[in-house]
């Protein structure tokens, strides 16, 4: 039905990821980046050309992890610390068409919202939905039109809920990874293009990766 998630259990429950774009909203420590790494590994196992656009505070740490799973330096695009760098990088790569990856991980959108003020707590900025729509249509999702599919990660609690709603509308699939107050982590399927077997999945993270319960 969809493309491989890189995790057998998720392929079975979700029927794979939609063949377009998926937004993963996550709490800190809930395993967003790990889910992204599985997404790339799933593509690599099927012989796809996979890539990662990294940006934000933990970029150096992330690059180490991507290299560790076997991603070549040419497949890792570093966007730099400022939002302008991110936009420019996407445009340049699209123009040259050199890195037209079959699947692309964007980790993460969070710093754009933090730096640009597109999210945050300012109600005037938050209501500026047109700006956000344009930003997504012109810059981010243009990649998907020309290439393969995209998984974008975001710390959703950094962004105003109203803005998150607009953001969710631009993605075919939306997953949310949450830390509960106790010792559990939970994955919620917020939006999906087809019916899924379960809407809520509990999991833990071990040395071997995701373990669903």
């Amino acid at each position: 039905m969809g493309v491989s998630t890189g995790i057998k259990y998720l392929d079975k429950v979700l029927g794979g990821y939609p063949d377009h774009n998926v937004l993963v909203e996550h709490d800190s420590g809930a395993g967003g980046t790990l889910l992204g790494l599985h997404y790339l590994l799933g593509g690599m196992r099927e012989g796809e050309n996979v890539g990662a656009l990294v940006a934000g505070a933990s970029a150096n740490n992330l690059i180490k992890k991507l290299t560790a799973i076997g991603l070549g330096r040419d497949n890792i695009v570093y966007a730099g610390p400022e939002p302008e760098d991110f936009f420019r990088t996407i445009h340049e790569r699209k123009r040259t068409q050199k890195e037209c990856f079959d699947r692309l991980l964007i980790d993460s959108l969070s710093h754009i919202f933090m730096e640009s003020g597109l999210g945050g707590v300012d109600p005037e900025v938050c209501s500026n939905s047109v700006k956000l729509k344009d930003f997504l249509a012109d810059r981010l999702l243009s990649w998907e039109k020309h290439c393969g599919h995209v998984m974008a990660l975001i710390h959703h609690k950094m962004v105003h809920p109203e803005v998150m709603l607009f953001l969710e509308e631009s993605f075919e699939g939306v997953l949310r990874l949450e830390m509960t107050g106790g010792r559990k982590r939970v994955m919620k399927i917020i939006r999906w293009p087809w019916d899924v077997k379960k809407k809520t999945l509990y999991y833990s993270i071990t040395e071997k990766g995701f373990v669903f319960k």
Binding site: G56, A57, S58, H155, K157, M158
Partner: peptide, 16 residues
């Protein structure tokens, strides 16, 4: 502090 502030600081750090 608001949840947004804490989440942003968590985003900027490596552990909590």
């Amino acid at each position: 502090h608001s949840p947004q502030v804490i989440t942003t600081l968590e985003y900027l750090t490596n552990g909590t």
